Computed example of a mutant assay.
Amino acid sequence: MSPYALSMLISSLSAGTIITFISNHWFLAWIGLELNTLAIIPIMSKMHHPRSTEAAIKYFLIQSMASALLLFATTLNAWYTGEWTIINMQTQTPLLLLTTALMIKLAVAPFHMWLPDVIQGLDLMTCLILSTWQKLAPMTLMIQVSSEINTTLFMFLGMLSLLIGGWGGLNQAQLRKMMAYSSIAHLGWMMIVMSYSPNLTLLNLMMYLLLTTSMFLMMMKLLSTNINKMASSWMKNLSLTSTMIIILMSLGGLPPLSGFMPKWLILEEIIKQNIPLAMMAAMSTLLSLFFYLRLSYMMSLTTPPTTMSSKLMWRLKMKLNMSTTIIMSTMLLPITPLILNMI
Rank of each mutant, 00 (worst) to 15 (best):
T53C: 08
M47T: 12
A29E: 00
M65Y: 06
K46T: 12
L61V: 15
H49N: 10
H49T: 03
A39H: 07
N36Q: 14
I31S: 11
L61W: 06
A56L: 03
Y59K: 00
L35V: 15
L61C: 09
I62V: 15
G32V: 02
S52C: 14
H48A: 14
L28N: 01
I40F: 03
M44T: 09
S52M: 07
L28Q: 07
I43L: 13
A39K: 12
I40L: 15
Y59G: 00
I62G: 03
A55E: 12
S64H: 08
L35D: 09
L33C: 06
I62M: 07
A56H: 01
G32F: 13
A39Y: 15
L33K: 11
R51H: 06
F60W: 09
L38V: 08
H48E: 14
A66K: 02
K46F: 10
I43P: 00
Q63Y: 03
S45T: 15
A39C: 12
M44R: 04
R51A: 13
A55L: 08
M65C: 11
M44D: 05
P42A: 10
L61Y: 05
A66Y: 02
L38S: 09
Y59I: 02
S45V: 06
A56M: 00
M47G: 06
L33S: 05
S64Q: 11
L35Q: 07
F27Y: 14
A55F: 04
G32P: 09
Y59F: 10
W30V: 03
T37L: 14
A56Q: 01
K46G: 00
A29I: 02
R51Y: 10
I41N: 08
M47P: 01
I31C: 11
I41C: 06
F27A: 15
L33E: 03
S52F: 08
K46C: 13
K58C: 05
I40W: 02
S52P: 03
H48P: 02
F60G: 01
A39Q: 10
H49D: 15
T37D: 03
I62K: 01
I40D: 03
S64I: 14
I43V: 15
N36R: 07
Y59S: 01
M65D: 07
L38P: 08
S45I: 08
A55T: 05
S45D: 06
M65S: 13
P50W: 13
L35T: 08
A29P: 02
M47W: 05
Q63T: 12
A66S: 13
L38Q: 11
W30G: 02
L28K: 00
I31M: 12
N36H: 11
M44S: 09
A66N: 04
P50S: 07
M47A: 14
H48S: 13
W30Q: 04
L61G: 12
S52E: 11
A56N: 00
I41K: 08
I57T: 15
G32M: 01
I62A: 05
K58W: 07
H48W: 08
L28F: 15
I31A: 14
H48Q: 15
L61Q: 11
I57E: 01
G32S: 04
E54L: 13
S45Q: 14
I40E: 02
I31N: 04
T37Q: 09
K58L: 05
I43N: 00
P42D: 10
I57P: 07
K58A: 08
A66G: 05
A56G: 01
F60S: 05
I43C: 11
I41M: 09
